[in-house]
Design a binder for these strands. Structure first.
Lengths: 200, 200
DNA sequence: TTCTGCGTAGACAGATCTGTCTACATGGGC
DNA sequence: GCCCATGTAGACAGATCTGTCTACGCAGAA
């Protein structure tokens, strides 16, 4: 596990410079929103932990909702990069999905899918979350489609697999462990592949 | 659609009597918690809509968290009864899962799975939700297992299907429509059944 | 020097939230 | 009648929340 790239590790700017106030706010929001929930995290707490003042906070994010949207977009880029990287690390085929997810589920701070969580928490008051989540899930479909063998490129196999991944994330969250969920996911992935691979 | 049993319709006591104050609170909580979210629903609003006083409210539910737990247990019984009933209505086999879920997804007030939503919203502060959600999902596995053909009774097929159902619920919530999600679910269910049914 | 961008210090306002409490009323059982 | 269970009317307290605002400082560019 030594080479495990924690998906939110790049909390620092790429260059060797201190994070700007805006970045500090965004990184802090990412950490606290995901860990404790959006409504459970007040702006005062964000401000204290990001070491900015209220004026600075509201200069960069005119409302908390603006920060939530920024948080989700940031999360999408982070998670996307991480997922692609881990799939490649594990062989870049369908079999890579489970070990990749396993790294995430096994991490101490796994708390389900940020998009599903935010959707559940706030979709009624911040409908933008729906569109952002849809975009995130569609991107996941594309990432999975990229690692499918040619024989599985039709019939929405990637879509079905992405849906099963969502179910797996939920199950891992409820179980507080990904062990069983990943067994089930392997079963589903395998069944979907068998259906698309003609047997002589 | 005339015979569609809306899953939360039995908001009245079975006998012809007025609901007690406790029931009124519980029914109101069920409606508002599911529709708007738990944290988004303050006790004053519950109290106003349930037509009880604060004293009565807190006599029956010593804290809001107690009501949340009661809400989820009530929800479990309701949803469970509804699901079993709709499966039976549609033939009580694996093919019944999708039309049953379709009724739910098509209802105006579909807002995803109450357990997933509550988990996302509050698991950090009310860990009991995890156990309740686990119980709910395990029960769903049992319900699905009951409608599986004998050939699919091994290999955790019911577990895999229940996981796929969770993914479907999420997808329907994000899409704001169950149309595509159900196509994908049918594909997964079919693949799982094919894997368990030996082909000569 | 002036201006702009970005940062600092917090105080403040109003709304909302959960929970505590007093006082009283009604109905049923003993 | 007395007691208990259950209900009513709200006022109140303290905490938390999001957002607005004043005053000031520093650095860099023109």
């Amino acid at each position: 596990m030594g080479d495990r790239l924690v998906y939110y590790a790049p909390m620092q700017p790429a260059e060797n410079r201190s994070p700007s106030a805006r970045e500090r706010i965004l990184f802090t929001a990412h950490e606290l929103f995901y860990r404790d929930g959006i409504r459970a995290t007040g702006v005062d707490r964000l401000i204290a932990q990001a070491h900015v003042t209220k004026t600075t906070f509201y200069r960069h994010f005119p409302s908390k909702n603006d920060l939530v949207i920024a948080f989700l977009n940031y999360r999408h880029e982070l998670w996307r990069g991480w997922f692609i990287s881990r799939l490649q690390h594990h062989g870049n085929d369908v079999e890579a999905i489970c070990p990749a997810l396993s790294e995430w589920f096994d991490s101490d701070d796994f708390r389900g899918c940020a998009f599903i969580n935010s959707l559940s928490e706030l979709a009624g008051t911040l409908p933008e979350i729906i569109e952002i989540s849809r975009h995130h899930k569609d991107d996941m479909v594309n990432i999975i489609a990229d690692i499918l063998p040619p024989s599985a490129q039709s019939g929405k196999v990637a879509h079905a697999m992405a849906l099963a991944v969502d179910g797996t994330i939920i199950r891992a969250q409820i179980d507080q462990s990904g062990k069983e969920a990943l067994v089930l996911l392997r079963k589903i992935l395998s069944a979907l592949l068998s259906e698309e691979t003609p047997t002589i």
